[in-house]
Design a protein around this nucleic acid. Structure first.
Lengths: 354, 354
DNA sequence: TTTAGCACTCTTGGCCGCCGAGTGCTAACT
DNA sequence: AGTTAGCACTCGGCGGCCAAGAGTGCTAAA
């Protein structure tokens, strides 16, 4: 349906969308007449045709035009200038990540903050999750008589911690010996393998104590959780700035956004979809089946290391969104994060080439 | 100024505040006449007196009364029924914390969620921070040729992680030996002591390599950060539900709240104040010097283990807040968290007896 | 000291009419 | 055939006006 648009009609559509994105007010035929070098009547004719094609609408008879979902979609796929970020912006971003490269658990915050600032909408980031985690190392540390802290390091450097109840008389030396035993038993094992270990008393001399079995179970559980992304919250940033956009004039809009971000839609529906796809996903308004997304657009990309771990970065904003800028930002930041993780994990990074 | 209120006048004030908290609409003299057994004219006289005393106001001449900051303050300190949570609610909360007692890093999320639900406003929680952290243990794990993961365990069980650059040829055995050396050198040392170590090449045979010095520096930095609370974000929950309150009819209110929570007021001003005080802090509207708090009330309590670590839990809501419920909830949950941390850290818990 | 009564104040909501922005259509022009 | 000028028409937004209702403050009587 799209190819039949002639050059001028495309120019009109593009101009309408760009101006609407810019000003948030419906675009009048007058506004475009000058820059297109034709009269407003001609523009009106073109607009009417674009409306018939389903790419533009009206709010009421005497109002200017604004894009439909399909209009935005056409714009994103055929009309948009693929404005990459300026090299200066790229360098800024690189620099900020470089600054905190050693603080693993701050990447997510940084990514959200940087993305929110460059894309100028609300940004979301999920922590990386493993496809298949591999055991690397545990450490058992006596906290007091009754409690032991278990620190579990996974193959690619993720660290999980947990407390375990212990026999009142266990010494730190005994704990270290136990940790050593388990480190050997579980060496490079997968979550599944360790779960299996936990079920069947493994052959070992001397046989494993019930405390040792408890440790193995806990390891298995922690690793499975890491694979299943259980109880991960998504981190977001830039919401406050986004609320200055005119679409958030009434509070119900704010509630809608918050409920998408924190009420499940994001986590249950969008994130899994992004994890399962390559490249940058652009979801415009009602294109997604979830009704609460009708007035919003979402741009998401996977990041991480192929086959090992992956997370999701992206933005959420009103349908009237600066698509070129947002898409480039998401793509670029996903790339930077993949690179950083590649340094940690190996070299098979996810590069969102779309 | 407060003691001169006679019994009936107190009853009127209390009734006005309770009803206003309940309904969010100014209270008319009629509304109270029945329940107080006097005519509306009498109530009006009493109200006028309370207004002269600065405890109630008017929005305009023909509108009902509503409390001032001073009115709420008097209510909180002299009038309020100290409604503890029901034992059933207490048991529910206990149970939920018991469920995840071993997952250290989820306490904060849980606390915020539970508090938001019981107090029915937005809840905030900061992770615990140490007064003086003590070194317990580090582990160095080779991630790849060029990178080492350092896992640092502090005395009371907090775990910090960081990556460090390493010589290309370092083996895991070498790393373990280095970790062992540093574990001995730093045994139970404070952040300051380790920082001092990092500055002066300590006496040791053989002398410490530059990589070993780097590790010590990183340990010192991480411990200092833990004490200074650097780059901690405050976690919050329940915002979405709070937006249903009528005070959030316009978006500027929502922005105000978000900017208190995420824009610094909370972190820079309120949290430090709560950390420095005992018991439950109640800050009502304009009582606090920060102008952006004029329309909001904050209830905060420290939690943790005296002298070791402390964090803050609390709620933020409109000035018209269910003070009895909120205060009890904050107090109770701070207590539960202190108990849990006490189990981990020793026994000198902070008990907010107000 | 309490209360009935009443005048007065101020908000809220509905209604009306005007203005301006912008369209759709038709007829003329190229 | 495509473009454009012209014009009637539509609709939202804004201000003014009015009536209703809620609630007070005050006064005078109980």
């Amino acid at each position: 349906m799209n190819l039949e648009l002639n050059e001028r009609r495309r120019r009109v559509l593009k101009a309408v969308i760009q101006q609407y994105i810019d000003t948030a007010t419906p675009v009048a035929s007058q506004d475009l007449a000058r820059s297109l070098g034709v009269s407003s009547a001609t523009v009106r004719n073109e607009m009417a045709a674009l409306e018939d094609a389903g790419l533009l609408t009206h709010l009421h008879t005497s109002a200017g035009r604004l894009p439909t979902d399909a209009g935005y979609r056409f714009f994103v796929e055929n009309l948009m200038d693929r404005a990459a970020l300026s090299t200066q912006e790229q360098r800024m971003i690189q620099h900020q990540f470089y600054q905190i490269r050693s603080e693993l658990n701050q990447w997510i915050h940084l990514a959200a903050a940087v993305l929110a600032r460059t894309a100028q909408t609300a940004a979301v980031v999920t922590p990386p999750r493993a496809y298949e985690s591999r055991f690397k190392h545990i450490e058992l540390i006596a906290i007091n008589d009754a409690l032991v802290l278990m620190v579990l390091v996974l193959h690619e450097g993720s660290v999980k911690q947990q407390t375990l109840p212990a026999d009142p008389n266990t010494t730190q030396e005994q704990l270290s010996r136990i940790a050593g035993r388990i480190n050997e038993l579980c060496h490079e094992a997968s979550a599944k393998a360790i779960a299996a270990l936990a079920l069947t008393q493994p052959v070992a001399q001397p046989p494993l104590s019930s405390f040792e079995m408890l440790v193995i179970e806990s390891v298995a559980r922690a690793m499975q959780q890491f694979e299943e992304h259980v109880n991960e919250l998504i981190h977001h940033d830039g919401l406050l700035e986004m609320l200055h956009q005119p679409e958030f004039g009434q509070v119900t809009r704010v509630r809608e956004v918050l409920s998408i971000l924190e009420g499940g839609t994001m986590l249950e529906s969008l994130i899994p979809q992004a994890l399962a796809s390559d490249g940058v996903q652009v979801i415009i308004g009602g294109e997604h089946s979830r009704d609460e997304l009708r007035d919003y657009s979402v741009i998401l990309s996977r990041y991480g290391v192929n086959g090992d771990v992956a997370g999701v970065v992206g933005v959420l904003g009103p349908r009237r969104m600066a698509y070129p800028r947002s898409i480039s930002s998401v793509r670029y930041i996903a790339g930077v994060m993949s690179d950083l993780m590649g340094d940690l994990y190996g070299e098979r990074k996810i590069e969102p080439t779309e």
